[in-house]
């Protein structure tokens, strides 16, 4: 990126933060516009995090003696059995971010433990947290017996995203993981048949990543729009 472009982006982001989204939408170059949008998201997130730390500081100063208890039975169950694996837990305890290393073991635990019995994997999706940030996989689990739900979040490094596969734990995960691999390039270690699900097998790149740029040709066929002047 040249200095001019950086300046253009920073100006547009400042205007957008003040509430004027048109300044970003008016950028003509597509990749530049995408970069500006990513920068905006980043700026917004930074502002939010700042706010959060301020409020939590206030809360701590008010009542610092009581440690924050996770808000759901599932969260406290996980904290009891795998204390070192939890990175972050939401206030209601329904959404827990864990480290990737022991994920397969934790998955079996969550499926089989009598108090958890999360026997159904409802959904598995990837998330791109933005330019320069990590990729994330989210598992939405549900228990038929207890009728409770849990969302498990696992972050993966953008450059070599690897996460243990739970395809053998929940058979549902088979195609879910293949789709996530297809769209985000996240490698699920231990998956027995990790191929692309939707895109052709010789497709280049990971389409749902925010820095994705489509290839110019595919088997000699032009990929981006070519019929200029139709609009």
């Amino acid at each position: 990126m040249t200095a001019d472009q950086e300046k253009l982006i920073s100006e547009a982001v400042e205007k957008a933060l003040a509430g004027d989204m048109d300044s970003i939408n008016a950028i003509e170059d597509r990749s530049l516009r995408a970069k500006a949008k990513a920068a905006l998201v980043k700026a917004k997130r930074a502002a939010k995090a700042e706010q959060k730390t301020e409020t939590s500081d206030d809360a701590k100063s008010a009542d610092s003696s009581v440690p924050q208890e996770p808000g759901s039975p599932l969260a406290s169950l996980l904290t009891a059995f795998y204390p070192g694996e939890i990175v972050e837990s939401s206030n209601d305890g329904n959404s827990i971010q864990i480290k990737p290393e022991k994920w397969e073991e934790i998955a079996v635990f969550l499926r089989d433990h009598a108090d958890a019995l999360l026997d159904q994997l409802e959904c598995l999706t990837g998330v791109d947290l933005g330019e320069g940030e990590e990729l994330q996989v989210r598992y939405n689990l549900h228990s038929m017996k207890h009728r409770h739900k849990l969302e498990v979040l696992i972050n993966a490094d953008r450059n070599s995203p690897e996460i243990p596969s739970v395809e053998t734990v929940w058979r549902m995960a088979d195609w879910f993981e293949r789709e996530t691999y297809d769209m985000y390039g996240i490698v699920f270690n231990g998956h027995r048949d990790l191929r692309r699900l939707l895109c052709p097998e010789d497709w280049e790149g990971w389409p749902l990543r925010k820095d994705y740029e489509e290839q110019k040709t595919y088997h000699g066929i032009v990929v981006p729009k070519v019929k200029e002047g139709w609009e």
Binding site: C199, E214, V223
Partner: peptide
């Protein structure tokens, strides 16, 4: 899918 459909052929007359 004309503008942002990376996976769509932009007209079957290309093939």
């Amino acid at each position: 899918y004309w503008q942002y459909g990376y996976h769509v052929l932009k007209g079957v007359d290309l093939v």
